[in-house]
């Protein structure tokens, strides 16, 4: 037990050190790298908190996609970097900010220490009702049965965010392809990796989706993996991002939500409520929703990383 606490203590120190470095380091590119390291360390913390689902998500999205986004952006903003640094606030604002951050942290720490013991929990209620869903993974049961509306709205969040990103398209490029055209050596190492890895990635993603019903995993983790494979192929120049005006693309983006809504409304006559599942069919229906959502999530996440269209669609 004490050894475990020692390990956790070291992990916390490491996380905090990387976080401080990320905030204070002068070079933004370095901060982006720091954030990637931070995301991976945080995923370890999630494992230590017995939340493996969250760990997978944090590693894939926090450590992976967010860092890709950040690092790509810092490279493009390199030119303005020096000018921006000059605008760093003086010591007094920094002191005030430190006071603000410090007092919030201190207040939160006090609240954490004063949390009630034993802690209130919904675990018994989940355990009582999970049998009706036929699932073994309690987190998946919460996401797709007990609190399905949150998950539905979250799918809508992703679509909203993509719509918002696309709104930033320059008018002349509307309907065009997102991101730059990546030209790399077709016989280079990256192209080789981009040919070798996606088949493995797709198998792993399907596996992660499939076990998500009973073990840690699910559509977000699987979708992120697929998105990463697609992005790899795009960045290696093997394929191009599709023009955003394509019907099939729009269809894929909304497919997950449409399937979710359709099954949700089917629950009204068949199971007595919106987003309820008929008895005995909960698991197959949930897997169906997850499979459709995985594809939509993969495409949405990848397009969010690529950003608004930057060039016309040359057929």
């Amino acid at each position: 037990m004490n050894l475990a606490l020692l390990f956790d203590g070291m992990l916390v120190v490491l996380i905090l050190a990387v976080a401080v470095w990320t905030v204070t380091v002068r070079d933004s590119f370095a901060a982006g790298i720091g954030y990637a390291v931070y995301g991976l360390l945080l995923a370890l913390a999630w494992v230590r908190l017995a939340a493996v689902d969250a760990a997978l998500t944090e590693a894939a999205i926090g450590g992976g996609l967010t860092s890709v986004l950040m690092i790509r952006a810092t490279v493009r903003l390199r030119a303005g970097e020096a000018a921006a640094r000059a605008a760093t606030p003086g010591p007094l604002p920094r002191l005030l900010a430190a006071l603000l951050g410090g007092s919030v942290a201190a207040g939160l720490a006090l609240v954490v220490l004063a949390l009630p013991d034993p802690a209130p929990t919904l675990a018994p209620q989940v355990a009582e009702h999970i049998a009706t869903t036929g699932l073994g993974n309690a987190v998946t049961a919460v996401l797709l049965s007990f609190r399905a509306i949150d998950t539905l709205l979250e799918a809508v969040v992703l679509i909203y965010a993509l719509i918002a990103v696309w709104t930033l398209t320059p008018d002349r490029f509307w309907g065009g392809r997102p991101g730059p055209k990546y030209e790399t050596d077709p016989n280079g190492m990256l192209a080789y990796l981009a040919r070798l890895l996606p088949p493995i990635g797709i198998v792993v993603a399907v596996y992660v989706l499939w076990v998500g019903a009973d073990l840690p995993g699910g559509k977000f983790q699987a979708g992120t993996l697929l998105a990463a494979m697609w992005l790899l192929a795009i960045m290696a120049g093997l394929t191009e991002a599709p023009p955003i005006s394509r019907r099939w693309l729009r269809g894929v983006l909304v497919a997950g939500t449409v399937v979710f809504l359709a099954i949700g409304f089917a629950g009204v006559p068949l199971a007595g409520a919106f987003l309820a599942y008929p008895e005995g069919f909960a698991k197959p229906l949930i897997v169906a929703i997850e499979a459709a959502s995985m594809l939509s999530i993969a495409f949405t996440l990848a397009l969010l990383v690529l950003g608004p269209p930057e060039r016309r669609d040359q057929a």
Partner: peptide, 13 residues
């Protein structure tokens, strides 16, 4: 009031 999925709070929404 509408219970989504037929689940009452605190478990449901």
């Amino acid at each position: 009031v509408y219970l989504l999925g037929g689940w009452a709070p605190p478990l449901g929404i």
